[in-house]
């Protein structure tokens, strides 16, 4: 399970960084989204990968920490997802405003001179 997750995070982060460095604003937005997926998965994995474990205990039942997932990274990921989601939405608006004002989707607001 771990190698698959690690490779997945790596591929997401790599593609995200590559897109982030592209000159078109839309590519930058997609790059940031991919990068944020990678980071979210990364936080999630920090709570250890344990298939089928729930992050809460049964009332009354004996508690064995080895059988439960760590709930904190899950809460952190939830917060991080909400924040990056909102920021991406904001960035999209700025992207559109920039496109409308400058007439180009280049990140610098003007095309490279050939």
């Amino acid at each position: 399970m771990e190698p698959v997750l690690a490779i997945g995070i790596g591929v997401l982060a790599g593609s995200g960084v590559w897109l982030l460095l592209r000159p078109r604003t839309f590519q930058v937005v997609i790059g940031l989204s991919l990068l944020s997926y990678a980071v979210n998965l990364f936080i999630f994995v920090m709570g250890w990968v344990r298939g089928g474990a729930a992050p809460f205990v049964q009332p009354g039942a004996p508690v064995d920490p080895a059988r439960f997932a760590d709930p904190l990274p899950q809460a952190l990921v939830l917060t991080a997802i909400v924040i990056t989601f909102a920021m991406t939405a904001l960035l999209l608006v700025v992207l559109l405003a920039s496109r409308g004002l400058t007439g180009t989707d280049h990140v610098d607001g003007r095309e490279d001179e050939e």
Binding site: T25, A80, L90, L91, V94, S98
Partner: peptide, 21 residues
């Protein structure tokens, strides 16, 4: 302002992702 903010937002979003890592 819009083009300066575009850079500002992208750079700070990236920094925030580093923060999370």
């Amino acid at each position: 302002r819009v083009s300066a903010s575009l850079h500002y937002i992208v750079i700070n979003l990236t920094a925030s992702l580093l923060f999370l890592v």
